[in-house]
């Protein structure tokens, strides 16, 4: 296992903004500066429509920043998604014409990995996401949460060094959410990857992350960066730690006025 060098910046955003062009251009994001440390677990919370998914698109190279620059492992990200970045989208992105197994194997097959290796990694990822009883099922036969797990497994098999997840547990109930959070932590520890998790749930952000970025209402900017200082070996039982309440409280304090703005009720 490679040693973790927390000081190295794994991905860097400098002065990044994103304006969607059109009849009335939408200023969705920024300006944003962010350094993701190698092996860090970073979460983003922010009000609805503030530009979180836009941030993910720009960071992964799916859309270009209007201003500023993005780099990953020292190389500028431009035009295409670099090798080593895995993305799980907010929308259901399972391929409805492929079985669970073929969905998970999709990326590997087209990267030309040899078939024994594909089989091994796919089986591992399917087991890891608890889908072993559904390998032959089609996405239409699964629940929303299970489909999202298929998409996570599909990203996982590529062994990305930077994993971007956009509301991956949005479709799950609270209990399963907590357990999936534990699985994500396990994955993070085992792979040594850097994780950027976008979530609506403050408690989820508080319990999983090393650091949480709180975003303002659109155009999204970081208005607070909250360090949690949890041990690397941690799980959902943190919720009973008094520090958990403190962190969550701090997140909500920063976020509440922004969320009120986002639903059209400015603070008095």
């Amino acid at each position: 296992m490679p040693t973790r060098k927390a000081a190295d910046a794994h991905a860097v955003l400098r002065g990044v903004t994103r304006i969607y062009p059109g009849g009335t251009p939408v200023h969705a994001l920024g300006p944003i500066d962010l350094d993701l440390a190698q092996g860090e677990f970073f979460s983003v919370v922010g009000p609805s429509g503030c530009g979180k998914s836009t941030l993910l698109d720009v960071l992964s190279g799916l859309s270009p920043p209007t201003e500023g620059s993005v780099s990953f492992e020292g190389k500028t990200v431009a035009g295409q998604v670099p090798e080593g970045i895995g993305v799980v989208f907010q929308e259901d992105a399972s391929l409805p014409w492929l079985t669970v197994r073929d969905n998970v194997a999709f990326g590997l097959r087209h990267a030309g990995t040899d078939s024994a290796e594909v089989d091994r990694r796919v089986s591992y990822a399917i087991g890891f996401m608890g889908l072993q009883d559904f390998t032959g099922a089609y996405p239409s036969q699964l629940s929303g949460g299970m489909r999202q797990r298929v998409c996570i497994a599909r990203t996982l098999v590529l062994q990305p060094r930077l994993i971007l997840l956009d509301e991956p547990f949005g479709a799950l109930d609270q209990q399963t959410r907590l357990l999936m959070g534990d699985e994500l932590l396990r994955l993070w520890r085992e792979t040594d990857a850097t994780v950027l998790l976008i979530t609506h749930a403050l408690d989820e952000a508080a319990l999983l992350s090393d650091r949480v970025g709180v975003m303002s209402a659109r155009p999204g900017r970081f208005i607070d960066l909250v360090e949690t200082s949890w041990a690397r070996e941690r799980d959902s039982r943190i919720v009973s730690d008094p520090a958990f309440g403190t962190v969550t409280g701090r997140l909500w304090a920063a976020l509440r006025p922004e969320s009120m703005k986002a639903i059209g009720r400015p603070q008095p």
Partner: peptide, 9 residues
Amino acid sequence: VMHKVARVH
């Protein structure tokens, strides 16, 4: 999102 999936791969 399908177009994004293609780009990610």
